[in-house]
Amino acid sequence: MKGALSLAECKPAFKTDCTLIFNNGRDKKDFILRTSFDSVGVWKAKNPDTPISYFQSTKNLITKEAAIIDGDVWVFSIDATKPQDIVASVKIGMDHYKAKASDIIGDVYVKNLNSDHQKTLSKHDLIIENKKLYSGVCKAVMGAAKLLGVQGVINFYVISSNINHKIPKDDLYDALKQGGASKVESDDIKYKMWSGSNDGLEGLMIKQNLHLATLSV
């Protein structure tokens, strides 16, 4: 089986496409494990019309709230800068999908991560905070992989415009390398896709770039 882990999701309508790879290619996934920073109550308030089916782990691994949404497992209250939170979500995914940790955390996707304080920060300070965020998520993914006993290369895909004023390409590269990436590269293809805000109230259709940070564990 081959899956993927998508961190910091918002609305299902804006969910990350975890089949994307370089050169306009597609890598079919058997399943996707998605996480949200919000608690299930907050998420539900932002998405009141979305059908959601709660479930219980067969191995009593539920240390976080989880549900099936549009056929995918979503795990809530996950801070992607904390290795233990990522481990908790992966264990829930392992149980539900009957998969190995490496099947889930081998390909990790994030799209337009942004500080929760973005509306109160200057452009300069927002870039600094977002660099800390991306760096922290990289470190947490590597830390979680070690805790789960996963070794080898993790593909950490980032969907973000090269001219994203909240974290331009050069700053994104710096952040990923500070987070432990041994190599960072970008695709020339531009993808037009929806991206949602942290508050869940709005979304924009914008042109995005695909970046790949290689994390070696």
Rank of each mutant, 00 (worst) to 15 (best):
K2Q: 07
A4V: 01
A8Q: 04
K11E: 09
K11H: 10
A13C: 03
D17A: 01
C18F: 04
T19Q: 11
L20Y: 10
N23R: 14
K28I: 13
I32D: 09
L33T: 06
S36E: 12
S39I: 09
G41L: 11
A45H: 09
K46P: 07
K46W: 12
D49K: 15
Q56L: 14
S57H: 08
S57F: 03
S57Q: 05
S57K: 06
N60F: 09
N60G: 09
N60I: 00
L61F: 07
L61T: 03
T63R: 14
E65P: 01
A66C: 15
A66R: 10
I68W: 03
W74A: 00
F76N: 05
D79F: 05
D79L: 10
K82C: 09
P83Q: 08
V87C: 09
K91Q: 15
M94A: 06
D95V: 03
H96V: 14
Y97D: 06
Y97N: 04
K98S: 11
A99M: 10
A101R: 05
A101H: 05
S102W: 03
G106P: 03
V110W: 01
N112S: 10
N112V: 08
N112Y: 07
N114D: 00
S115T: 14
D116K: 13
S122T: 15
H124Q: 15
H124D: 13
H124N: 13
L126F: 00
L126Y: 00
L126W: 00
E129F: 03
Y134F: 12
S135E: 13
S135H: 02
V141Y: 02
M142D: 11
M142A: 07
L148C: 12
L148Y: 12
V150H: 04
Q151V: 06
G152K: 10
G152Y: 07
V153M: 04
V153I: 12
I154T: 03
N155Y: 07
S160D: 00
S160L: 08
S160E: 06
S160A: 08
S161D: 10
N162F: 05
N162V: 02
N164L: 00
K166D: 05
D170R: 15
D171V: 01
D174S: 12
K177C: 08
Q178D: 15
Q178A: 11
K183L: 12
K183S: 12
V184I: 11
E185A: 10
I189W: 05
Y191R: 14
W194E: 01
S195W: 01
D199A: 03
G200A: 06
L204S: 11
M205G: 01
I206H: 01
N209F: 02
N209P: 02
A213E: 02
S216D: 14
V217P: 08
